[in-house]
Simulated assay, not measured.
Amino acid sequence: MTSGFDPSEYGRHIAEVYDDLHAELSADAAVAVIAGYANGGAVLEFGIGTGRIARPLAAGGLHVDGIDGSPEMVEQLRRNPWGESLRVEIGDFSTTTLGRRYAVVVLAYNTINALPSQEAQVQTFRNAAAHLEPSGVFLVENWVPDVAGFHRGRAVRAHELAEGRVLVEVAELHPAVQRITATRLAFTADGVRLLPVEHRYVWPAELDLMARLAGLHLEERWQDWDRGPFTDDSSTYVAVYRKDP
């Protein structure tokens, strides 16, 4: 197990190739859900990254701000002309404040796991609640931990097998602290790129309790942004946490 947990390390390694590696991800369904809950109000995205979700939201006429811990990821966002119009603070989204309220706060694509501890995750919910307007919503997208996928604490998974690129992840499980230490290996014609990442994985019910501690309550949970039903077989989910009146 590594001696430290730096949630910004992933961005330092992957920022230059993030959009290319995740080109297959569509933001359409997420944007539709977020815009619907915003109903013309402002949106704050924790972990805004390169702007995959923020860009279409802003293009649709919504005011969008962001917080991200990786200067390298924000630099990629700023390289786009539309990126200059977004207010983005570089900092820890569990504690950084922007001094205004929002109709929606978003934490997408499993980014809750990038935080190093349960306390940091609890604080993220409190920070989201502090940024929300009365009855605003905090939208969290995450995966369901699959500890059974590890054999003797280790796993090798093929994430992508495509012409010109193979993406493989080698991971080690640390169940005592709910942490996964992993390295993704991106094989391309240009060589091999190592992308280290750490997760403090969290269970759906654990997030629900964090929400209650922050004055939020679970309103809905779906399997995905298309609002598919969340079942025993679901490997991902989107949770809608409403601020208590």
Rank of each mutant, 00 (worst) to 15 (best):
M1F: 13
S3E: 10
S3C: 10
P7C: 01
E16G: 03
E24I: 12
L25R: 10
L25S: 04
V33S: 03
V33T: 12
I34W: 12
A35R: 14
N39F: 13
A42H: 07
V43N: 05
G47I: 02
R52K: 08
I53A: 14
A54V: 12
P56M: 02
G60T: 05
L62I: 08
D68T: 08
G69L: 08
S70M: 08
Q76Y: 00
R79H: 10
G83L: 04
E84V: 11
L86G: 02
I90R: 09
G91N: 09
D92E: 11
S94E: 09
T97K: 06
L98A: 05
R100H: 13
R101A: 14
Y102V: 03
V105N: 08
V106C: 15
N110T: 15
T111P: 13
I112S: 11
L115T: 09
L115S: 13
P116G: 04
S117G: 11
A120C: 14
Q123P: 04
F125K: 12
A128W: 07
A130G: 08
H131E: 04
G136M: 11
F138Q: 10
V144Y: 01
P145D: 00
V147Y: 00
A148I: 02
A148L: 02
G149M: 09
G153L: 10
H159L: 08
R165E: 15
L167A: 13
E172D: 06
H174W: 05
Q178F: 05
R179Y: 04
A182Y: 03
R184I: 00
L185A: 07
L185M: 06
G191Y: 06
V197A: 13
H199F: 13
R200E: 01
R200T: 05
G215A: 05
L216Y: 03
H217Y: 01
R221C: 12
P229E: 03
F230N: 00
S234Q: 07
V240C: 11
D244A: 10
P245N: 00
